[in-house]
Amino acid sequence: METLVFALLNGVIYGLLLFMLSSGLTLIFSMMGVLNFAHASFYMLGAYLAFTIMEGTSFWIALFLAPVLVGLVGMVVERYGLRRVHAQGHVAELLFTFGLAYLIDEVVKIFWGRTAVNYRVPELLDFPLFTLYGAQYPAYRIFILFVAAFMLVALWYLLKRTRAGLIIQAALTHPHMVGSLGHNVPLIFMSVFGVGCALAGLAGVIGGNYFVTDPAMAVQMGPIVFVVVVVGGLGSLEGAFVAAMLIGLLQTSAISINASLADIFGFLGLGPHTEVGEITIASMAPMLPFLLLVLILMIRPRGLMGEREV
């Protein structure tokens, strides 16, 4: 029971962070038809900017300012980079974002050094909120939960309940029609790219001190975010949400399981002391998202809720 409760709590928080990261990516993908390889780098940028802003001022200012700054950087990248490259086709765009990821990586290393920075949880939130089955639960984790939930509701409201959301949705599928109706489609593209990056930045701000802020964080997060987008279905926000939660829960609960493969597949004759039988479920946790990716591509290539094939 206690294992289940903790796995659920941690899994939901991790899943929400993943969704925050991948929601921007999936929006950008459905709009431009190109996977932004640099997306996780914006996540890293958010964490580092928040660290610097927090040193000068406070965490609360960083919480608002850092995502805005990352969003602005994203807009500039779209306006002066991607939009020009767009004329050369998708391959050029893909290569552009690929190069951008490396560029941001190196810039971060030059400015903030090659090792992890000491980005800490703000003192106001650095206390145990409650005790559950003998383990204290830090308040900051619950704070992440609230920020993520707030972002989720705000995004849903923006896209589904406002006129701007209506136009964005239309521009995603029928950009020419929207343009013909007199809307400034390039401006919409730029804003969506900016907002997508800002969301990644926000995930960096609240995830950077929950995990670690170091130059490797983008590289480590990048593949998982792609898995979320592909499993959820390219271009589907709902799908990305379901996939992010699924992966979050899968990874954290796998760690809590004490069984080995032999315990599960013992009925097939797998002995507990064989090479394969000795593998524990916990040690397979980092592999599970990618296993899911492969399975989804084999069984349902358009993802859980996607409308088009990968």
């Binding site: 903790f6 941690n10 991790y14 383990a135 995990f211 954290t252 809590s256």
Partner: peptide
């Protein structure tokens, strides 16, 4: 996994239980 875990909370909760 070596140098891959960012959050040891699930492991610590296992130790506690």
């Amino acid at each position: 996994p070596l140098a891959k875990v960012k959050d040891f909370t699930p492991y610590v909760q296992k130790i506690i239980s």
